[in-house]
């Protein structure tokens, strides 16, 4: 590999992505970082306030509520989605009649714009007019405040997120399964490994990178959940069900506190990156890949 790795060649291969990324991602983040150090209402002139916005986050009860909600959604959805979507990918890899069509259909929710996902589910989860409570009422179960109450909203958001992401995660696992060398799989089957043993001792170890990819994508996506909450409850009642980004959106655009909103955005970015990096560190410590 050394033969093709001259310095100009490396530069040539990296430069396009690096320039595009730096110009349209890094520079804007830096720009917003500068705004996070100001008091700026969006229309007037920004006023330098140093770290005031960051200090304000510490005492902002709505921010902490949003953080707790996001953490709940993160834990619930990872616990269900990682095993669930992997199992589904294994299942759809079997020779089941119409598995191609099934895959396309399971992927369906991932195609729907998040704002519509929220709209669909508000008609299912609304405590008064929603399908779910109507169905439960038919069974004699009293109405449950799935959304808009005091406690259940983050769990309901997690369920909706799981619904909308399972096809996404499944597709990545499925692509991962397709790249496994067939000889290894055949060899282990010939060795008499049962389905479960094969999955546990051959498939999962070989797909470690895929698991890392799916986990990181899901973590960063949970940290970006916005439209779901915005449509389901508007963050209410009184910001009780906000997630990090929905609250940042409220502060930045509804409240027009651009400076403070950007400070929140910076913190959200850092938190998302830290959780992902933490996961990477944990998973690489478990077993060093070859």
């Amino acid at each position: 590999m050394n033969w093709i790795s001259s310095r100009p060649k490396i530069l040539l291969m990296l430069a396009p992505a690096f320039i595009l990324f730096t110009l349209f991602m890094t520079y804007p983040v830096g720009y917003s970082l500068a705004f996070s150090l100001t008091k700026f209402q969006g229309f007037g002139t920004p006023r330098w306030t140093g770290l005031d916005n960051y200090a304000r986050i510490l005492t902002d009860q709505f921010f902490w509520q949003a953080l707790v909600n996001t953490a709940i959604i993160l834990v619930v959805s990872l616990a269900v989605l990682i095993p669930g979507s992997f199992a589904l990918a294994l299942l759809l890899q079997r020779k089941i009649a119409g598995s191609g069509a099934l895959k396309a259909l399971v992927f369906g929710p991932a195609i729907i714009a998040p704002i519509l996902v929220g709209l669909i589910w508000v008609f299912i989860l609304d405590p008064k007019i929603g399908l779910l409570n109507r169905a439960l009422a038919g069974l004699g179960v009293p109405a449950v405040t799935w959304i808009g109450g005091n406690t259940l909203t983050p769990y309901s958001v997690a369920i909706v997120f799981i619904w909308s992401s399972i096809g996404f995660a499944m597709t990545i696992f499925y692509a991962g399964l397709q790249t496994l060398p067939s000889d290894v799989m055949e060899a282990s089957a010939l060795d008499g490994a049962t389905g479960w043993q094969q999955v546990r001792h051959v498939t999962i170890p070989m797909l470690r990178a895929t698991f890392a990819i799916v986990t990181i994508l899901l973590i960063t996506n949970v940290f970006k959940i916005f439209e779901l909450v915005y449509v389901l409850t508007g963050g209410g009642p009184v910001h009780r069900s906000e997630t990090l980004v929905s609250y940042m959106y409220y502060v930045t655009f509804t409240n027009q506190q651009y400076g403070y909103g950007m400070a929140l955005a910076v913190i959200i970015t850092v938190l998302g990156a830290l959780v992902s990096a933490g996961y990477l560190m944990l998973s690489s410590r478990k077993g060093d890949r070859r």
Partner: peptide, 9 residues
């Protein structure tokens, strides 16, 4: 870049 919410941009 994965962690960056679009509203920052």
């Amino acid at each position: 870049g994965l962690a960056v919410p679009v509203y920052i941009l």
